[in-house]
Design a protein around this nucleic acid. Structure first.
Length: 467
DNA sequence: TCGTCTTTCACTTTTGAATCGC
DNA sequence: AGCGATTCAAAAGTGAAAGACG
């Protein structure tokens, strides 16, 4: 097997898709990932997607659902998702648009969501769409449920990783392929700011059916609380006015208008989807135009922001953005490049070696160093990717003799109650549990790997710092 | 102290999985 | 064993109150 270090050289520049493959995985470079419900995502994105985050954790809506193809049917893959900050700013909703409100908070412990089916054969991943429905977002930095921790009023986008690996242990030796989709970026909030987003969510999320202004529910609500209906009418009226008259040029209108006109019939709107100009109508456009922050990534073309992430082949439904303008990517690794020296290393470039060559260091120590608020302030951009978390998950074997002294959650350890996670965290966060046992890669317990992988999906895989 | 912004919590409704009975 | 009805936990947004901050 080619050493990862050797591979590094291969990624000193934008790798052609064929090169995106790792050792023994030449096909990886051809992996295709397409986002499902892109129309819905684009509709939200056109307005400025917001995702509620709560202490107990909140699911995303729309939720991430992807299709994979060009995997090796008989090879095993692991699928992961993490959230990366779009930029180093905190935002506020002011007068119908988002504005920069200062520097971002120090990044909370970074967590990665492992798809419960992982690892699974390529054929398994390809036979149907892969849903991340159960992925939850929280603003609770003390969260012990493995939810992804985000800061409110900050912007993020999900990043999907697929790794060819027979088990979690071998992840560290594998090459990650990372995919991002511009339309999935969102602002984490504790309460919806944009009423249009609220409306969209209500009309598309089955669980929010009860709040729709139609059918029996409407009558019931009207009877119970006329004031509520009145308010809704107001909102509705406001929305209409928005789209009809003084809709600010910087504010999206087309997508929502179309939506309003044909409520709950998304597929039909597809025809009008050309109207969904994510760039042109996104509320973020306002920021790009009016924000005093000229250095805000928001000012760049949205597509560029993802370019460094893309190793994506070009799916019909979504054209990935390939490597260009590396330095502008909000992704941790690429940001590092731009912040450090402007070298503009691609995410992929940095990631590959990081994954495989990560030393068995004390990640908690490392972490404190990396994430701490002292790290040059909120604007400090993501540090080098530290994939020791991947090791952490392998640790899993909890309780098995072995390896690295990483702090990890161990569902198998009697000493550690389920729900304890172990992402090495910065000083301001609760100290991770320390396993009394160490691991070595040889300590892999095969039985474990074929056990309930789903349990691991709730625990941090990547302990790297995002900032 | 006051005002604004953000977060939290109780509430209502719907969904869907689990359970029970025929 | 299979099917339909029922139960209940989880998930959704609302709106008011509390908390944080300048």
């Amino acid at each position: 097997m080619q050493s990862i270090r050797d591979l590094k050289a291969n990624f000193s520049g934008p790798p052609p898709s064929s090169m995106a493959a790792g050792p023994d995985a030449y096909l990886q470079g051809n992996i295709r990932m397409t986002l499902e419900d892109t129309e819905l995502w684009k509709t939200f994105h056109g307005i400025g997607t917001e995702m509620i985050i709560t202490k107990p954790g909140r699911r995303m809506f729309p939720h991430c659902k992807v299709n994979l193809s060009c995997l090796i049917p008989c090879a095993k893959y692991i699928l992961l998702v993490d959230m990366v900050p779009e930029d180093g700013f905190r935002y506020k909703w002011n007068k119908e648009k988002w504005e920069v409100a200062g520097k971002a908070e120090p990044q909370p412990p970074c967590r990665t969501y492992l798809h419960p089916d992982s690892p699974a054969l390529g054929s398994h991943w390809m036979k149907q769409s892969v849903s991340f429905l159960k992925l939850k977002l929280t603003n609770n930095t003390l969260d012990q449920h493995g939810h992804i921790i985000l800061h409110s009023m900050h912007r993020y986008h999900p990043r999907f990783h697929i790794v060819q690996a027979d088990d979690l242990f071998s992840v560290r030796w594998s090459v990650f392929q990372t995919f991002t989709f511009p339309e999935t970026s969102f602002t984490a909030v504790t309460a919806y700011q944009n009423t249009k987003i609220t409306r969209l969510k209500i009309d598309h999320n089955p669980f929010a059916k009860g709040f729709r202004d139609e059918g029996t529910t409407k009558k019931r609500r009207a009877n119970k609380n006329p004031a509520c209906l009145e308010k809704r009418a107001k909102i509705s009226d406001m929305l209409n006015r928005d789209s009809e008259e003084d809709s600010p040029p910087d504010f999206c209108r087309s997508s929502y208008e179309g939506y309003d006109a044909d409520e709950g019939d998304l597929p039909k709107r597809k025809e009008d989807d050309d109207a969904v100009k994510e760039e042109r109508y996104s509320p973020w456009a306002a920021e790009r135009e009016h924000s005093v922050r000229t250095d805000s990534p928001a000012e760049t073309d949205n597509r560029d922001m993802y370019s460094t992430e893309q190793l994506v082949p070009a799916p019909a439904s979504y054209q990935p953005y390939r490597f260009h303008e590396f330095g502008k990517s909000p992704s941790p690794s690429s940001s590092v490049g731009s912040s450090n020296s402007g070298s503009g290393r691609s995410t992929f470039e940095s990631r590959v070696p990081d994954v495989a060559t990560v030393p068995d260091h004390d990640s908690s120590k490392h972490r404190t160093h990396e994430i701490g608020p002292s790290q040059g302030g909120p604007q400090h951009l993501p540090g080098p990717q530290d994939y020791t978390g991947v090791l952490n998950m392998t640790m899993a074997q909890a309780g098995k003799p072995g390896v690295i002294g990483h702090h990890i959650y161990s569902p198998y350890s009697a000493e550690q109650p389920l729900g304890q996670w172990s992402g090495p965290g910065p000083a301001q966060y609760p100290p991770p549990h320390h396993l009394t046992t160490d691991y070595t890669t040889q300590a892999v317990h095969h039985g474990y790997h074929h056990g309930n992988m789903a349990e691991w999906s709730q625990y941090p895989l990547f302990s790297y710092s995002c900032w």
